[in-house]
Amino acid sequence: MLKKNAETIVSIKDVHKSFGQLEVLKGVSLDVKKGEVICVIGPSGSGKSTLIRCINGLNDIQGGQINVCGIDLTDPKLDKLELRKRVGMVFQQYNLFPHKTALENIIMAPTLVLKQDKAASEKRAFELMQKVRLEGKEHAYPGELSGGQQQRVAIARSLAMNPDVMLFDEVTAALDPETVKEVLVTIKDLAQEGMTCILVTHEMGFAREVADHIYFTDNGVIVEHGSPKTFFNKAKDPRTKEFLSQIL
């Protein structure tokens, strides 16, 4: 799966981020190549969510550089709309718009932001619903769907924008154990189609299975990274070892 010579699509260099006094990211660097699947793992409060929120500009950074699809995020004249067309994001709490049906949730951004034709985006929305295996639920409201179903609609909603990179922020953390699997299957499908994905997750088994590269963060820095095989079997850093022994 690893694309050796693919171009770098997300490049993060020595990023610093603080909320007031609290420094959350203390010089983080990582590169993501096109088609790669990256998993960021680590104890809670280690800054992994903040890191991926910085990638689509939800959080500003105080130092370092982030470049996504050739867009420099530190540029003061940054076109955030352009950035968000390129980067899709799925949240822990799904964050569907509760007053819109699943289908309306999906077509809202393409019609409003990309000004696409309504019929065309509806057609695409039906395809996406099929892709996330939710055919027949197009006209249900989020409140009528289970957590796993809502999360899959949320994934479809992000995909409708045809992003180059997808960010997943602990997307299974709020789900029931039974529904976690259906969401992971959807993400795996995406990964196999060659979508560039950056995931923050606690699902070690899943990370091991789909990731091309795993990053372990603790206390605002990347402690260790490597391919799943080396990471899970030959971790060097004591902090990684301790974390893995607790979680596995």
């Binding site: 689509n56 939800l58 955030k80 709309l81 968000r84 067309k85 980067v87 899709g88 994001m89 949240f91 709490q93 964050n95 569907l96 718009f97 509760p98 007053h99 809202m108 951004a109 409003l112 932001v113 990309l114 949320a154 909603r157 992000s158 924008m161």
Partner: peptide
Amino acid sequence: VADSTKEAAESLGFSRFQTFRYVIFPL
């Protein structure tokens, strides 16, 4: 209206006005 819902709209590329008009206000 939950901040996370606003963030979702923002990360889909909605402008401030669009977020207000289509998400925040109806809720």
